[in-house]
């Protein structure tokens, strides 16, 4: 079972995540680029992910897809930070919920970039049982999700105060 992805859920989850994250960022960038452009890019990336699942890495961890996604999300997060600097929505940027969502995305995906990049090497060359991979992944996941929860909590407080 070493390096296998038994129920394929993780691969499909990655694709769903791609759709969600792209549309969330489209909203955060004030509906830019246009939805048609986002859909075209999504179709291209999803096709690549499906091809990787069918004829590429198959039932192994789809690390190529995850690496590409993590890279794209990291770039999106950096660009969004610069977007926030150019168009500051509030006086204190750290009180803006999407700021913390973006921090969560950046921590989780850029942190995992090295893990995803080295997964194939780890499994096939070093024959590692991925315990270390999952340990690091889950710690980063905790941090990333923690920041996203903080963002949701801030948004909830903001809505409540209105």
């Amino acid at each position: 079972m070493m390096g296998m992805n038994p129920n394929l859920v993780h691969a499909f989850y990655g694709m769903l995540e791609l759709i969600f994250v792209f549309f969330i960022y489209q909203r955060l960038f004030n509906n830019r680029p246009r939805t048609a452009v986002v859909i075209v890019v999504l179709v291209f990336l999803l096709t690549a992910a499906v091809l990787n699942l069918l004829i590429g890495q198959g039932t192994n961890i789809n690390s190529y897809s995850f690496t590409a996604q993590a890279f794209i999300y990291s770039v999106l997060a950096v660009v969004y930070f610069f977007y926030l600097l150019q168009h500051p929505p509030v006086v204190m940027i750290q009180r803006f919920p999407p700021f913390w969502f973006n921090v969560g995305v950046m921590v989780y995906f850029s942190g995992n970039l090295i893990l995803f990049t080295l997964t194939h090497y780890l499994v096939h060359q070093l024959k590692n049982d991925l315990m270390i991979y999952w340990t690091f992944h889950n710690v980063l996941f905790l941090f990333g999700t923690g920041f996203m929860c903080l963002s949701l909590w801030m948004e909830y407080r903001l809505q409540k105060s209105r």
């Binding site: 600097l85 942190g111 970039l113 090295i114």
Partner: peptide
């Protein structure tokens, strides 16, 4: 060694992320 390699790599990236976040906050 693998764990150390991941720890160094991930730690470096997280440091970079922290630096970016701090830069954004202070620059703003």
């Amino acid at each position: 060694e693998i764990a150390l390699m991941f720890a160094v790599g991930t730690g470096a990236i997280l440091l970079l992320v922290t630096a970016i976040v701090l830069f954004v906050v202070f620059y703003q």
